[in-house]
Design a protein around this nucleic acid. Structure first.
Length: 548
RNA sequence: GCGCCUGUAGCUCAGCUGGAUAGAGCAGCGGCCUUCUAAGCCGCGGGCCGCAGGUUCGAAUCCUGCCAGGCGCGCCA
Protein backbone atom coordinates (compact mmCIF):
# COMPACT_ATOMS: atom_id res chain seq x y z
CA UNK A 1 0.00 0.00 0.00
CA UNK A 2 2.76 2.32 0.93
CA UNK A 3 4.40 1.32 -2.34
CA UNK A 4 1.47 2.40 -4.48
CA UNK A 5 1.39 5.73 -2.64
CA UNK A 6 5.08 6.19 -3.18
CA UNK A 7 4.70 5.40 -6.86
CA UNK A 8 1.90 7.94 -7.15
CA UNK A 9 3.99 10.57 -5.41
CA UNK A 10 6.90 9.85 -7.69
CA UNK A 11 4.64 10.22 -10.68
CA UNK A 12 3.27 13.50 -9.36
CA UNK A 13 6.83 14.69 -8.95
CA UNK A 14 7.43 13.83 -12.59
CA UNK A 15 10.12 11.30 -11.84
CA UNK A 16 8.31 8.36 -13.40
CA UNK A 17 5.27 7.96 -15.59
CA UNK A 18 2.62 5.29 -15.99
CA UNK A 19 -1.05 5.03 -16.81
CA UNK A 20 -2.10 2.24 -14.56
CA UNK A 21 -0.31 0.51 -11.77
CA UNK A 22 0.25 -3.13 -12.67
CA UNK A 23 -0.59 -6.00 -10.33
CA UNK A 24 2.70 -6.50 -8.60
CA UNK A 25 3.54 -9.09 -6.00
CA UNK A 26 5.30 -8.92 -2.70
CA UNK A 27 7.02 -12.17 -1.99
CA UNK A 28 9.59 -13.65 0.30
CA UNK A 29 12.82 -14.05 -1.62
CA UNK A 30 14.51 -17.40 -1.78
CA UNK A 31 17.80 -15.86 -0.84
CA UNK A 32 17.81 -14.58 2.74
CA UNK A 33 20.25 -11.82 1.90
CA UNK A 34 17.56 -10.26 -0.26
CA UNK A 35 15.56 -9.31 2.78
CA UNK A 36 12.26 -10.54 4.10
CA UNK A 37 10.00 -9.25 1.37
CA UNK A 38 10.60 -8.20 -2.20
CA UNK A 39 8.36 -6.25 -4.55
CA UNK A 40 8.65 -6.49 -8.32
CA UNK A 41 6.67 -3.31 -8.96
CA UNK A 42 9.48 -1.43 -10.67
CA UNK A 43 10.19 -4.33 -13.02
CA UNK A 44 6.59 -4.37 -14.16
CA UNK A 45 6.53 -0.61 -14.62
CA UNK A 46 9.61 -0.56 -16.81
CA UNK A 47 7.74 -0.82 -20.08
CA UNK A 48 5.11 1.85 -19.39
CA UNK A 49 7.55 4.23 -17.78
CA UNK A 50 10.18 3.65 -20.46
CA UNK A 51 12.89 3.79 -17.87
CA UNK A 52 15.20 1.20 -16.42
CA UNK A 53 13.63 -0.74 -13.58
CA UNK A 54 16.41 0.26 -11.22
CA UNK A 55 15.75 3.98 -11.75
CA UNK A 56 12.06 3.50 -11.20
CA UNK A 57 12.70 1.52 -8.05
CA UNK A 58 15.02 4.23 -6.79
CA UNK A 59 12.37 6.90 -7.42
CA UNK A 60 9.74 4.92 -5.59
CA UNK A 61 11.99 4.25 -2.64
CA UNK A 62 12.86 7.96 -2.44
CA UNK A 63 9.19 8.76 -1.95
CA UNK A 64 8.48 6.00 0.49
CA UNK A 65 7.52 7.29 3.92
CA UNK A 66 10.63 7.04 5.98
CA UNK A 67 9.71 5.57 9.30
CA UNK A 68 7.89 2.37 8.42
CA UNK A 69 6.93 0.46 11.51
CA UNK A 70 8.87 -2.75 11.81
CA UNK A 71 10.88 -2.20 8.67
CA UNK A 72 14.58 -1.96 9.29
CA UNK A 73 15.78 -1.44 5.73
CA UNK A 74 14.47 -0.76 2.23
CA UNK A 75 16.77 -1.11 -0.73
CA UNK A 76 16.87 -1.47 -4.47
CA UNK A 77 18.56 -4.62 -5.59
CA UNK A 78 19.25 -6.83 -8.58
CA UNK A 79 17.39 -5.85 -11.74
CA UNK A 80 15.09 -3.51 -9.79
CA UNK A 81 13.54 -5.31 -6.88
CA UNK A 82 12.56 -3.29 -3.87
CA UNK A 83 13.62 -5.32 -0.89
CA UNK A 84 12.34 -4.85 2.63
CA UNK A 85 14.20 -6.16 5.61
CA UNK A 86 12.11 -6.37 8.73
CA UNK A 87 13.20 -5.32 12.11
CA UNK A 88 13.81 -8.57 13.95
CA UNK A 89 11.60 -7.47 16.81
CA UNK A 90 8.70 -7.59 14.38
CA UNK A 91 8.88 -11.36 14.40
CA UNK A 92 8.76 -11.94 18.10
CA UNK A 93 5.02 -11.65 18.79
CA UNK A 94 4.48 -14.85 16.82
CA UNK A 95 5.90 -16.90 19.68
CA UNK A 96 3.29 -16.02 22.32
CA UNK A 97 0.64 -16.57 19.65
CA UNK A 98 1.91 -20.07 18.94
CA UNK A 99 1.85 -20.99 22.62
CA UNK A 100 -1.62 -19.57 23.03
CA UNK A 101 -3.10 -21.27 19.97
CA UNK A 102 -1.24 -24.50 20.65
CA UNK A 103 -2.70 -27.36 18.61
CA UNK A 104 -4.63 -24.89 16.49
CA UNK A 105 -1.62 -22.82 15.54
CA UNK A 106 -1.65 -22.48 11.76
CA UNK A 107 -5.37 -23.16 11.49
CA UNK A 108 -7.65 -20.67 9.78
CA UNK A 109 -11.20 -20.19 8.65
CA UNK A 110 -10.68 -19.85 4.93
CA UNK A 111 -13.23 -22.59 4.32
CA UNK A 112 -15.83 -20.83 6.44
CA UNK A 113 -17.45 -24.08 7.40
CA UNK A 114 -18.34 -25.05 3.84
CA UNK A 115 -19.02 -28.74 3.47
CA UNK A 116 -16.50 -30.66 1.43
CA UNK A 117 -16.26 -34.33 0.77
CA UNK A 118 -13.05 -36.21 0.11
CA UNK A 119 -13.49 -39.62 -1.44
CA UNK A 120 -10.40 -41.76 -1.57
CA UNK A 121 -9.07 -45.30 -1.82
CA UNK A 122 -12.48 -46.80 -2.72
CA UNK A 123 -10.62 -49.99 -3.58
CA UNK A 124 -12.32 -53.04 -4.92
CA UNK A 125 -13.63 -54.83 -1.86
CA UNK A 126 -12.75 -58.13 -3.44
CA UNK A 127 -9.13 -58.04 -2.48
CA UNK A 128 -6.47 -56.48 -0.33
CA UNK A 129 -5.07 -52.97 -0.45
CA UNK A 130 -1.99 -52.49 -2.60
CA UNK A 131 0.59 -49.75 -2.86
CA UNK A 132 -1.53 -47.59 -5.12
CA UNK A 133 -4.34 -47.67 -2.58
CA UNK A 134 -1.81 -46.84 0.11
CA UNK A 135 -0.70 -43.73 -1.70
CA UNK A 136 -4.31 -42.73 -2.16
CA UNK A 137 -4.98 -43.30 1.53
CA UNK A 138 -2.06 -41.16 2.65
CA UNK A 139 -2.84 -38.40 0.16
CA UNK A 140 -6.57 -38.35 0.73
CA UNK A 141 -6.31 -38.34 4.49
CA UNK A 142 -3.74 -35.54 4.52
CA UNK A 143 -5.82 -33.47 2.12
CA UNK A 144 -8.83 -34.01 4.36
CA UNK A 145 -6.73 -32.96 7.37
CA UNK A 146 -5.58 -29.85 5.53
CA UNK A 147 -9.08 -28.82 4.57
CA UNK A 148 -10.23 -29.31 8.13
CA UNK A 149 -7.37 -27.15 9.33
CA UNK A 150 -8.40 -24.27 7.10
CA UNK A 151 -11.98 -24.33 8.24
CA UNK A 152 -13.91 -26.70 5.99
CA UNK A 153 -16.44 -29.18 7.29
CA UNK A 154 -14.90 -32.35 5.88
CA UNK A 155 -16.42 -35.77 5.25
CA UNK A 156 -14.18 -38.71 4.40
CA UNK A 157 -15.86 -41.28 2.25
CA UNK A 158 -15.12 -44.74 0.86
CA UNK A 159 -17.14 -45.86 -2.16
CA UNK A 160 -17.75 -49.58 -2.08
CA UNK A 161 -17.83 -51.15 -5.53
CA UNK A 162 -20.23 -53.90 -4.54
CA UNK A 163 -22.04 -54.15 -7.85
CA UNK A 164 -21.29 -55.01 -11.43
CA UNK A 165 -19.30 -57.57 -13.33
CA UNK A 166 -16.47 -57.93 -10.90
CA UNK A 167 -18.91 -58.90 -8.18
CA UNK A 168 -20.40 -61.45 -10.55
CA UNK A 169 -16.94 -62.84 -11.08
CA UNK A 170 -16.25 -62.71 -7.40
CA UNK A 171 -19.39 -64.76 -6.76
CA UNK A 172 -18.46 -67.34 -9.38
CA UNK A 173 -14.98 -67.65 -7.92
CA UNK A 174 -16.31 -68.06 -4.41
CA UNK A 175 -18.79 -70.60 -5.63
CA UNK A 176 -16.05 -72.63 -7.28
CA UNK A 177 -13.99 -72.57 -4.08
CA UNK A 178 -17.06 -73.56 -2.10
CA UNK A 179 -17.85 -76.51 -4.31
CA UNK A 180 -14.21 -77.57 -4.37
CA UNK A 181 -14.07 -77.47 -0.59
CA UNK A 182 -17.08 -79.75 -0.47
CA UNK A 183 -15.45 -82.26 -2.77
CA UNK A 184 -17.06 -81.24 -6.04
CA UNK A 185 -15.56 -80.51 -9.39
CA UNK A 186 -15.59 -76.78 -10.08
CA UNK A 187 -13.42 -74.32 -11.96
CA UNK A 188 -12.70 -70.72 -11.19
CA UNK A 189 -13.47 -68.51 -14.21
CA UNK A 190 -10.47 -67.52 -16.28
CA UNK A 191 -10.80 -63.87 -15.28
CA UNK A 192 -11.95 -64.68 -11.76
CA UNK A 193 -10.20 -64.42 -8.43
CA UNK A 194 -7.56 -67.08 -8.05
CA UNK A 195 -6.03 -65.89 -4.80
CA UNK A 196 -5.64 -68.34 -1.93
CA UNK A 197 -7.40 -65.90 0.38
CA UNK A 198 -10.74 -67.04 -0.99
CA UNK A 199 -10.03 -70.58 0.17
CA UNK A 200 -9.75 -69.33 3.73
CA UNK A 201 -12.83 -67.16 3.36
CA UNK A 202 -14.87 -70.07 2.06
CA UNK A 203 -13.51 -72.19 4.88
CA UNK A 204 -14.98 -69.76 7.40
CA UNK A 205 -18.20 -69.67 5.44
CA UNK A 206 -18.45 -73.45 5.67
CA UNK A 207 -17.64 -73.33 9.36
CA UNK A 208 -20.74 -71.22 9.80
CA UNK A 209 -23.15 -72.62 7.22
CA UNK A 210 -21.76 -76.06 6.39
CA UNK A 211 -23.05 -77.51 3.13
CA UNK A 212 -26.36 -75.73 3.46
CA UNK A 213 -25.92 -74.06 0.07
CA UNK A 214 -24.66 -77.11 -1.79
CA UNK A 215 -27.95 -78.00 -3.38
CA UNK A 216 -29.67 -74.62 -3.42
CA UNK A 217 -30.31 -72.22 -6.24
CA UNK A 218 -26.87 -71.16 -7.48
CA UNK A 219 -27.92 -67.51 -7.57
CA UNK A 220 -28.85 -67.61 -3.89
CA UNK A 221 -25.67 -69.54 -3.11
CA UNK A 222 -23.54 -66.91 -4.78
CA UNK A 223 -25.41 -64.10 -3.12
CA UNK A 224 -24.81 -65.58 0.30
CA UNK A 225 -21.16 -66.23 -0.45
CA UNK A 226 -20.64 -62.71 -1.79
CA UNK A 227 -22.38 -61.12 1.16
CA UNK A 228 -20.28 -63.11 3.59
CA UNK A 229 -17.01 -62.50 1.75
CA UNK A 230 -17.59 -58.78 1.22
CA UNK A 231 -18.28 -58.24 4.86
CA UNK A 232 -15.07 -60.03 5.72
CA UNK A 233 -13.03 -58.19 3.12
CA UNK A 234 -14.40 -54.80 4.06
CA UNK A 235 -13.69 -55.44 7.70
CA UNK A 236 -10.11 -56.24 6.81
CA UNK A 237 -9.80 -53.12 4.66
CA UNK A 238 -11.26 -50.97 7.41
CA UNK A 239 -8.86 -52.42 9.98
CA UNK A 240 -5.79 -51.89 7.82
CA UNK A 241 -6.78 -48.33 7.04
CA UNK A 242 -7.28 -47.66 10.72
CA UNK A 243 -3.81 -49.03 11.37
CA UNK A 244 -2.69 -46.55 8.75
CA UNK A 245 -4.39 -43.77 10.69
CA UNK A 246 -7.30 -43.36 8.30
CA UNK A 247 -10.88 -43.36 9.54
CA UNK A 248 -13.88 -42.82 7.30
CA UNK A 249 -17.09 -41.03 8.10
CA UNK A 250 -19.10 -42.76 5.40
CA UNK A 251 -18.86 -46.12 3.63
CA UNK A 252 -21.08 -45.75 0.60
CA UNK A 253 -22.44 -48.76 -1.26
CA UNK A 254 -22.66 -48.68 -5.04
CA UNK A 255 -25.37 -51.33 -4.88
CA UNK A 256 -27.54 -49.01 -2.82
CA UNK A 257 -27.71 -46.63 -5.79
CA UNK A 258 -29.17 -49.40 -7.91
CA UNK A 259 -31.54 -50.55 -5.16
CA UNK A 260 -32.88 -47.06 -4.49
CA UNK A 261 -33.52 -46.38 -8.15
CA UNK A 262 -31.04 -43.51 -8.15
CA UNK A 263 -29.21 -44.90 -11.15
CA UNK A 264 -32.36 -45.35 -13.20
CA UNK A 265 -33.56 -41.89 -12.20
CA UNK A 266 -30.27 -40.33 -13.21
CA UNK A 267 -30.33 -41.97 -16.62
CA UNK A 268 -33.91 -40.82 -17.11
CA UNK A 269 -32.96 -37.26 -16.22
CA UNK A 270 -30.04 -37.29 -18.60
CA UNK A 271 -32.38 -38.53 -21.27
CA UNK A 272 -34.83 -35.75 -20.50
CA UNK A 273 -32.01 -33.28 -20.88
CA UNK A 274 -31.31 -34.73 -24.31
CA UNK A 275 -27.93 -36.31 -23.71
CA UNK A 276 -28.88 -39.97 -24.11
CA UNK A 277 -29.35 -41.87 -27.36
CA UNK A 278 -29.67 -45.49 -28.39
CA UNK A 279 -27.21 -47.32 -30.60
CA UNK A 280 -26.58 -51.02 -31.12
CA UNK A 281 -29.17 -51.81 -28.49
CA UNK A 282 -27.37 -49.87 -25.77
CA UNK A 283 -27.94 -46.41 -24.27
CA UNK A 284 -25.13 -43.89 -24.73
CA UNK A 285 -24.28 -40.64 -23.00
CA UNK A 286 -23.19 -37.83 -25.32
CA UNK A 287 -19.86 -37.16 -23.66
CA UNK A 288 -18.68 -35.57 -26.90
CA UNK A 289 -21.07 -32.69 -26.21
CA UNK A 290 -18.77 -31.83 -23.31
CA UNK A 291 -15.49 -32.08 -25.14
CA UNK A 292 -14.75 -35.73 -24.59
CA UNK A 293 -13.33 -37.74 -27.46
CA UNK A 294 -16.09 -40.28 -27.56
CA UNK A 295 -19.49 -41.11 -26.16
CA UNK A 296 -19.95 -43.62 -23.39
CA UNK A 297 -22.38 -46.44 -22.74
CA UNK A 298 -24.60 -46.04 -19.68
CA UNK A 299 -26.91 -49.03 -20.17
CA UNK A 300 -25.67 -52.16 -21.86
CA UNK A 301 -27.51 -54.12 -24.50
CA UNK A 302 -28.45 -56.60 -21.75
CA UNK A 303 -30.19 -53.83 -19.83
CA UNK A 304 -27.64 -53.61 -17.01
CA UNK A 305 -26.29 -50.12 -16.26
CA UNK A 306 -22.54 -49.61 -16.48
CA UNK A 307 -20.19 -48.52 -13.74
CA UNK A 308 -20.17 -45.09 -15.34
CA UNK A 309 -23.95 -44.80 -14.93
CA UNK A 310 -23.65 -45.64 -11.24
CA UNK A 311 -20.80 -43.16 -10.86
CA UNK A 312 -22.89 -40.33 -12.29
CA UNK A 313 -25.67 -41.19 -9.88
CA UNK A 314 -23.15 -41.37 -7.07
CA UNK A 315 -21.72 -37.93 -7.74
CA UNK A 316 -25.14 -36.44 -8.14
CA UNK A 317 -25.97 -37.98 -4.79
CA UNK A 318 -22.93 -36.28 -3.28
CA UNK A 319 -24.21 -32.88 -4.37
CA UNK A 320 -27.70 -33.72 -3.21
CA UNK A 321 -26.24 -34.42 0.21
CA UNK A 322 -25.14 -30.79 0.32
CA UNK A 323 -21.41 -30.91 -0.34
CA UNK A 324 -20.22 -27.70 -1.92
CA UNK A 325 -16.93 -29.20 -3.01
CA UNK A 326 -16.39 -32.81 -3.92
CA UNK A 327 -12.82 -34.04 -4.12
CA UNK A 328 -11.82 -37.42 -5.51
CA UNK A 329 -8.40 -39.00 -5.25
CA UNK A 330 -7.95 -41.22 -8.27
CA UNK A 331 -5.19 -43.25 -9.81
CA UNK A 332 -3.94 -41.75 -13.05
CA UNK A 333 -5.20 -44.78 -14.92
CA UNK A 334 -8.69 -43.36 -14.42
CA UNK A 335 -7.93 -39.97 -15.90
CA UNK A 336 -9.96 -40.65 -19.02
CA UNK A 337 -13.01 -40.84 -16.79
CA UNK A 338 -12.74 -37.28 -15.47
CA UNK A 339 -14.04 -35.37 -18.48
CA UNK A 340 -17.05 -37.64 -18.99
CA UNK A 341 -18.08 -37.52 -15.37
CA UNK A 342 -17.81 -33.73 -15.27
CA UNK A 343 -19.75 -33.61 -18.51
CA UNK A 344 -22.52 -35.75 -17.08
CA UNK A 345 -22.72 -33.57 -13.98
CA UNK A 346 -22.95 -30.49 -16.16
CA UNK A 347 -25.72 -32.16 -18.14
CA UNK A 348 -27.56 -32.63 -14.86
CA UNK A 349 -27.24 -28.93 -14.14
CA UNK A 350 -24.31 -28.90 -11.75
CA UNK A 351 -21.23 -26.73 -12.05
CA UNK A 352 -18.55 -29.27 -12.96
CA UNK A 353 -15.90 -27.23 -11.16
CA UNK A 354 -17.40 -28.34 -7.88
CA UNK A 355 -15.91 -31.76 -8.60
CA UNK A 356 -12.13 -31.73 -8.23
CA UNK A 357 -10.17 -34.82 -9.12
CA UNK A 358 -6.66 -35.24 -7.76
CA UNK A 359 -4.90 -37.68 -10.03
CA UNK A 360 -1.97 -39.53 -8.61
CA UNK A 361 0.50 -41.35 -10.75
CA UNK A 362 0.95 -44.99 -10.03
CA UNK A 363 3.39 -46.46 -7.59
CA UNK A 364 6.12 -48.64 -8.93
CA UNK A 365 7.71 -51.09 -6.57
CA UNK A 366 11.35 -51.97 -6.75
CA UNK A 367 13.05 -54.84 -5.10
CA UNK A 368 16.58 -55.92 -5.72
CA UNK A 369 16.71 -53.41 -8.55
CA UNK A 370 13.77 -55.03 -10.33
CA UNK A 371 10.26 -53.83 -10.86
CA UNK A 372 7.59 -55.72 -9.00
CA UNK A 373 4.27 -55.89 -10.78
CA UNK A 374 1.07 -55.48 -8.85
CA UNK A 375 -1.22 -58.14 -10.15
CA UNK A 376 -4.30 -59.55 -8.58
CA UNK A 377 -4.29 -62.30 -11.15
CA UNK A 378 -1.03 -63.77 -9.99
CA UNK A 379 -1.63 -62.74 -6.43
CA UNK A 380 1.84 -61.27 -6.31
CA UNK A 381 1.73 -57.84 -4.79
CA UNK A 382 2.74 -56.13 -1.62
CA UNK A 383 -0.20 -55.23 0.54
CA UNK A 384 -0.62 -52.17 2.69
CA UNK A 385 -0.72 -54.47 5.68
CA UNK A 386 2.71 -55.86 4.83
CA UNK A 387 4.03 -52.39 4.17
CA UNK A 388 2.96 -51.13 7.58
CA UNK A 389 4.50 -54.17 9.18
CA UNK A 390 7.84 -53.76 7.47
CA UNK A 391 8.26 -50.01 7.16
CA UNK A 392 5.99 -48.71 9.86
CA UNK A 393 3.03 -46.45 9.52
CA UNK A 394 4.89 -43.19 10.00
CA UNK A 395 7.52 -43.80 7.37
CA UNK A 396 4.98 -45.15 4.89
CA UNK A 397 2.65 -42.19 5.27
CA UNK A 398 5.44 -39.65 5.08
CA UNK A 399 6.95 -41.34 2.06
CA UNK A 400 3.70 -41.43 0.11
CA UNK A 401 2.88 -37.80 0.74
CA UNK A 402 6.41 -36.51 0.20
CA UNK A 403 6.04 -36.46 -3.57
CA UNK A 404 3.72 -34.37 -5.71
CA UNK A 405 0.74 -36.54 -6.59
CA UNK A 406 1.49 -36.31 -10.28
CA UNK A 407 5.02 -37.61 -9.90
CA UNK A 408 5.56 -41.27 -10.49
CA UNK A 409 6.51 -42.79 -7.17
CA UNK A 410 9.31 -45.29 -7.16
CA UNK A 411 9.16 -47.19 -3.94
CA UNK A 412 12.34 -49.05 -3.17
CA UNK A 413 11.26 -51.88 -0.90
CA UNK A 414 14.80 -52.73 0.12
CA UNK A 415 15.43 -49.19 1.28
CA UNK A 416 12.10 -49.00 3.04
CA UNK A 417 12.69 -52.33 4.73
CA UNK A 418 16.08 -51.27 5.97
CA UNK A 419 14.45 -48.86 8.42
CA UNK A 420 17.63 -46.85 8.26
CA UNK A 421 18.05 -43.23 9.17
CA UNK A 422 17.93 -42.44 5.45
CA UNK A 423 14.23 -42.03 5.80
CA UNK A 424 13.43 -38.33 6.09
CA UNK A 425 10.64 -38.92 8.55
CA UNK A 426 13.19 -39.79 11.22
CA UNK A 427 14.93 -36.48 10.70
CA UNK A 428 11.73 -34.62 11.49
CA UNK A 429 10.64 -36.86 14.32
CA UNK A 430 14.09 -36.69 15.83
CA UNK A 431 13.83 -32.91 16.09
CA UNK A 432 10.58 -33.31 17.98
CA UNK A 433 12.03 -35.94 20.30
CA UNK A 434 15.06 -33.76 20.95
CA UNK A 435 12.86 -30.86 22.00
CA UNK A 436 10.86 -33.09 24.28
CA UNK A 437 14.10 -34.29 25.80
CA UNK A 438 15.17 -30.74 26.58
CA UNK A 439 11.81 -29.94 28.10
CA UNK A 440 11.94 -33.10 30.21
CA UNK A 441 15.37 -32.18 31.49
CA UNK A 442 14.23 -28.64 32.23
CA UNK A 443 11.29 -29.97 34.20
CA UNK A 444 13.60 -32.27 36.13
CA UNK A 445 15.57 -29.22 37.14
CA UNK A 446 12.41 -27.46 38.22
CA UNK A 447 12.39 -25.15 35.20
CA UNK A 448 9.00 -24.69 33.59
CA UNK A 449 8.25 -23.01 30.29
CA UNK A 450 7.50 -19.45 31.35
CA UNK A 451 4.39 -17.61 30.18
CA UNK A 452 5.47 -16.12 26.87
CA UNK A 453 4.80 -12.57 28.02
CA UNK A 454 7.20 -12.93 30.89
CA UNK A 455 10.05 -13.95 28.65
CA UNK A 456 12.38 -11.34 27.25
CA UNK A 457 12.07 -12.57 23.68
CA UNK A 458 14.18 -9.72 22.36
CA UNK A 459 17.15 -11.68 23.67
CA UNK A 460 16.67 -14.08 20.76
CA UNK A 461 19.21 -12.48 18.43
CA UNK A 462 21.28 -15.34 17.11
CA UNK A 463 20.79 -15.86 13.34
CA UNK A 464 19.82 -19.48 14.02
CA UNK A 465 17.15 -18.29 16.43
CA UNK A 466 15.78 -15.71 14.02
CA UNK A 467 15.64 -18.15 11.12
CA UNK A 468 13.79 -20.61 13.28
CA UNK A 469 11.24 -18.00 14.30
CA UNK A 470 10.71 -17.00 10.68
CA UNK A 471 9.96 -20.57 9.71
CA UNK A 472 7.52 -20.93 12.59
CA UNK A 473 5.85 -17.71 11.50
CA UNK A 474 5.48 -19.08 7.96
CA UNK A 475 3.41 -22.05 9.09
CA UNK A 476 -0.09 -20.58 8.70
CA UNK A 477 0.62 -19.48 5.12
CA UNK A 478 2.03 -22.91 4.36
CA UNK A 479 -1.09 -24.64 5.59
CA UNK A 480 -3.33 -22.29 3.64
CA UNK A 481 -1.29 -22.68 0.46
CA UNK A 482 -1.10 -26.45 0.68
CA UNK A 483 -4.85 -26.65 1.34
CA UNK A 484 -5.70 -24.35 -1.50
CA UNK A 485 -3.52 -26.29 -3.95
CA UNK A 486 -4.51 -29.68 -2.49
CA UNK A 487 -0.79 -30.39 -2.23
CA UNK A 488 0.11 -32.02 1.07
CA UNK A 489 3.66 -32.61 -0.11
CA UNK A 490 4.32 -28.99 0.81
CA UNK A 491 3.87 -30.03 4.41
CA UNK A 492 6.71 -32.53 4.28
CA UNK A 493 8.94 -29.90 2.79
CA UNK A 494 8.02 -27.46 5.53
CA UNK A 495 8.54 -30.12 8.18
CA UNK A 496 11.97 -30.94 6.83
CA UNK A 497 13.02 -27.29 6.72
CA UNK A 498 11.70 -26.60 10.20
CA UNK A 499 13.48 -29.64 11.61
CA UNK A 500 16.68 -28.57 9.89
CA UNK A 501 16.50 -25.07 11.32
CA UNK A 502 15.90 -26.50 14.74
CA UNK A 503 18.86 -28.87 14.48
CA UNK A 504 21.08 -25.95 13.48
CA UNK A 505 19.76 -23.87 16.33
CA UNK A 506 20.34 -26.74 18.71
CA UNK A 507 23.95 -26.95 17.67
CA UNK A 508 24.70 -23.26 18.04
CA UNK A 509 22.50 -22.25 20.97
CA UNK A 510 22.20 -23.89 24.33
CA UNK A 511 18.61 -23.85 25.51
CA UNK A 512 19.26 -24.51 29.19
CA UNK A 513 21.73 -21.67 29.33
CA UNK A 514 23.19 -20.29 32.55
CA UNK A 515 21.61 -16.89 32.04
CA UNK A 516 18.04 -17.34 33.34
CA UNK A 517 16.59 -14.70 30.98
CA UNK A 518 18.14 -16.28 27.89
CA UNK A 519 16.99 -19.66 29.13
CA UNK A 520 13.41 -18.49 29.50
CA UNK A 521 13.33 -16.94 26.06
CA UNK A 522 14.77 -20.08 24.50
CA UNK A 523 12.35 -22.32 26.33
CA UNK A 524 9.54 -20.33 24.75
CA UNK A 525 11.15 -20.65 21.32
CA UNK A 526 11.67 -24.36 21.72
CA UNK A 527 8.13 -24.88 22.89
CA UNK A 528 6.82 -22.96 19.89
CA UNK A 529 8.96 -25.16 17.63
CA UNK A 530 7.62 -28.29 19.28
CA UNK A 531 4.02 -27.16 18.79
CA UNK A 532 4.59 -26.29 15.15
CA UNK A 533 6.40 -29.55 14.40
CA UNK A 534 3.71 -31.56 16.10
CA UNK A 535 1.00 -29.74 14.15
CA UNK A 536 2.71 -30.48 10.84
CA UNK A 537 3.16 -34.14 11.70
CA UNK A 538 -0.43 -34.31 12.83
CA UNK A 539 -1.67 -33.13 9.43
CA UNK A 540 0.50 -35.77 7.82
CA UNK A 541 -0.90 -38.49 10.02
CA UNK A 542 2.54 -39.14 11.43
CA UNK A 543 3.21 -39.48 15.14
CA UNK A 544 5.34 -36.98 17.01
CA UNK A 545 7.41 -39.16 19.34
CA UNK A 546 8.67 -37.78 22.63
CA UNK A 547 11.61 -40.16 22.69
CA UNK A 548 13.61 -41.90 20.01
C1' G B 1 -2.83 -42.66 -34.12
C1' C B 2 -5.28 -39.49 -30.15
C1' G B 3 -5.35 -37.85 -24.87
C1' C B 4 -3.28 -37.17 -19.67
C1' C B 5 1.25 -37.19 -16.60
C1' U B 6 6.54 -37.02 -16.24
C1' G B 7 11.73 -35.56 -17.95
C1' U B 8 16.05 -30.74 -13.01
C1' A B 9 23.19 -33.10 -9.65
C1' G B 10 25.58 -40.19 -9.91
C1' C B 11 20.35 -41.77 -7.40
C1' U B 12 15.33 -40.11 -5.30
C1' C B 13 12.99 -35.57 -5.66
C1' A B 14 11.74 -29.95 -4.36
C1' G B 15 11.46 -25.39 -6.86
C1' C B 16 5.71 -21.68 -3.26
C1' U B 17 1.45 -20.48 -9.62
C1' G B 18 7.14 -15.81 -14.37
C1' G B 19 11.95 -13.31 -10.62
C1' A B 20 17.83 -12.25 -8.42
C1' U B 21 23.87 -16.78 -8.22
C1' A B 22 18.44 -23.47 -9.71
C1' G B 23 17.88 -26.26 -4.02
C1' A B 24 17.37 -30.66 -0.41
C1' G B 25 18.16 -35.73 0.97
C1' C B 26 21.04 -39.98 -0.24
C1' A B 27 25.80 -41.47 -2.29
C1' G B 28 31.40 -39.32 -2.28
C1' C B 29 35.28 -36.38 0.38
C1' G B 30 36.91 -33.48 4.96
C1' G B 31 35.93 -31.67 9.89
C1' C B 32 32.72 -31.48 14.95
C1' C B 33 30.65 -35.30 20.96
C1' U B 34 34.18 -33.68 29.20
C1' U B 35 27.87 -29.46 28.88
C1' C B 36 20.35 -30.01 26.72
C1' U B 37 19.60 -37.10 22.21
C1' A B 38 25.81 -37.49 16.72
C1' A B 39 18.88 -40.68 13.94
C1' G B 40 22.57 -34.38 14.62
C1' C B 41 25.78 -30.03 12.95
C1' C B 42 29.56 -27.44 9.67
C1' G B 43 32.28 -27.43 5.02
C1' C B 44 33.75 -29.28 -0.22
C1' G B 45 32.88 -31.22 -4.95
C1' G B 46 28.96 -32.25 -8.42
C1' G B 47 23.91 -29.07 -13.44
C1' C B 48 23.57 -27.46 -22.02
C1' C B 49 16.74 -27.70 -15.82
C1' G B 50 15.22 -33.78 -22.31
C1' C B 51 16.05 -30.92 -27.37
C1' A B 52 14.77 -26.65 -30.59
C1' G B 53 12.15 -22.32 -31.32
C1' G B 54 8.72 -18.38 -29.32
C1' U B 55 6.41 -14.71 -25.64
C1' U B 56 8.72 -11.30 -21.75
C1' C B 57 12.71 -6.36 -18.78
C1' G B 58 13.28 -11.67 -16.90
C1' A B 59 11.57 -18.70 -18.43
C1' A B 60 13.16 -24.83 -14.94
C1' U B 61 8.16 -22.36 -14.68
C1' C B 62 3.89 -19.87 -20.00
C1' C B 63 3.12 -21.20 -25.75
C1' U B 64 4.47 -24.35 -30.22
C1' G B 65 7.06 -28.48 -32.31
C1' C B 66 10.06 -32.62 -31.68
C1' C B 67 12.54 -36.83 -28.48
C1' A B 68 12.13 -40.36 -24.34
C1' G B 69 9.38 -42.96 -20.37
C1' G B 70 4.61 -44.10 -17.68
C1' C B 71 -0.72 -44.49 -18.07
C1' G B 72 -5.29 -44.36 -20.65
C1' C B 73 -8.37 -44.75 -25.30
C1' G B 74 -13.83 -51.97 -23.31
C1' C B 75 -21.41 -52.67 -23.68
C1' C B 76 -14.37 -53.85 -17.41
C1' A B 77 -14.25 -51.09 -12.91
Amino acid sequence: MALTDAAATARAAGEISYDELPDFVIETPRDKTHGDFAANLALLLARQARQSPRNIAAAIVRHLERPQPGVARVEVAGPGFINFTLDNQWLLPVLPAVLAEDDHYGWSNIGQGARVQVEFVSANPTGLLHMGNARGAALGDSIANLLTAVGYDVTREFYINDAGNQIENFGLSLEARYLQALGQEAAIPEDGYHGEDLVATVGRFIARYGDKYLDTDPALRREMLVRFALEEKLDAIRRVLEDFGVTYDVWFSEQSLHDSGAVARTIADLEKAGYIYEKDGALWFKATSFGDVKDEVVVRKNGIPTYFAADIAYHRNKFERGFERVINIWGADHHGHVARLKGALQALGYDPRRLEVVLMQLVRLYQGGEILRMSKRTGQYVTLEELIEEVGRDAARYFFVMLKSDSHLEFDLDLARSQSADNPVYYVQYAHARICSILRLARDRGLEIPPAREARLELLQDPAELELIKQIAAWPDTVAGAAQALEPHRLTRFAHDLAGLFHSFYTSCRVLADDPEVRKARLVLVEATRITLRNVLHLLGVTAPERM
